[in-house]
Design a protein around this nucleic acid. Structure first.
Lengths: 135, 135
DNA sequence: GTAAGAGTTAAAGTTGACTTCATGTCAAGA
DNA sequence: TCTTGACATGAAGTCAACTTTAACTCTTAC
């Protein structure tokens, strides 16, 4: 398969496929007169990469998942190892977003300020009571 | 106050304060022999900017909040107007992150694949049943 | 034989919110 | 007076995950 065909089947731009290759996610395929000649299983590999991206992994993390463990490491072990940290990250994202939403809703409901300058002073005086988002 | 003092009081780098000025969040202050000379209320304004950032607004949105409405628009109206869209965005973020987490947990629990290549094929065959994250 | 279309590369551009750098000015303290 | 430190500016660098561009090669169809 040419890189164009792989792109159509996987829904990716050829440039993205080349990029994944350079990033170490895909092995360099055979070349036929200079051009990449893929076997069809690369489409599965790309689907896996997409799935990993969908659950939040970065490209370096996906490279780790694919090629960063001792060779006899099972896939389930690889997933579990990486999933632990990522689930933590996701919990943080969720918590932070919920805190932001709460803060925003209470602001939209309770703010009686006439000018934004009033808000600035209001925040300064009530600042200590505000829930913190830091972390 | 010099920009350094403002930075120390607001917890921001002077470069960030200059950046906010250029981005249209802060009005250009008076100059004393070329240097920015601030009145203390800029610290409140910066606290407000930080708060807006904390609840998820981008700098262009904050500029809108501060200077993008007719002058007699109340602060509460400004907040409500901008909060509506942002809350929607946050709901999407939360939903997406929760979906990612669910997918990741089920992967970590249920994956029995020996190699990651098996995962790739497994995803290809069961792909239609997978919950979509698109959107 | 030639033109269109797809492939190749390396390098630069994109977005957001800044920081860092290079270079220059200025002011206060010893 | 001289040094040190803070300030000024504009340009370039940062991160992620690609895309776009420029310049070139190669295949295929006519």
């Amino acid at each position: 398969m040419t890189i164009g065909e792989v792109g159509r089947q996987s829904g990716l731009a050829p440039s993205a496929i080349r990029f994944y290759e350079k990033a170490g996610l895909l092995r360099t395929p055979f070349r036929k007169s200079g051009r990449r000649a893929y076997t069809p299983d690369v489409v599965h590999q790309l689907a896996l990469i997409r799935f990993a991206k969908d659950v939040g992994f970065t490209l370096p993390q996906i490279r780790l998942l694919l090629h960063g463990f001792p060779q006899n490491t099972t896939a389930s072990t690889r997933w579990r190892t990486l999933a632990r940290g990522k689930i933590k990250e996701l919990d943080e994202v969720i918590g932070k977003a919920q805190a932001m939403k709460t803060l925003l809703e209470s602001m939209a409901i309770k703010c009686q300020c006439r000018t934004v300058e009033d808000c600035a002073k209001c925040l300064a005086t009530s600042g200590k009571a505000k829930p913190s988002l830091a972390g």
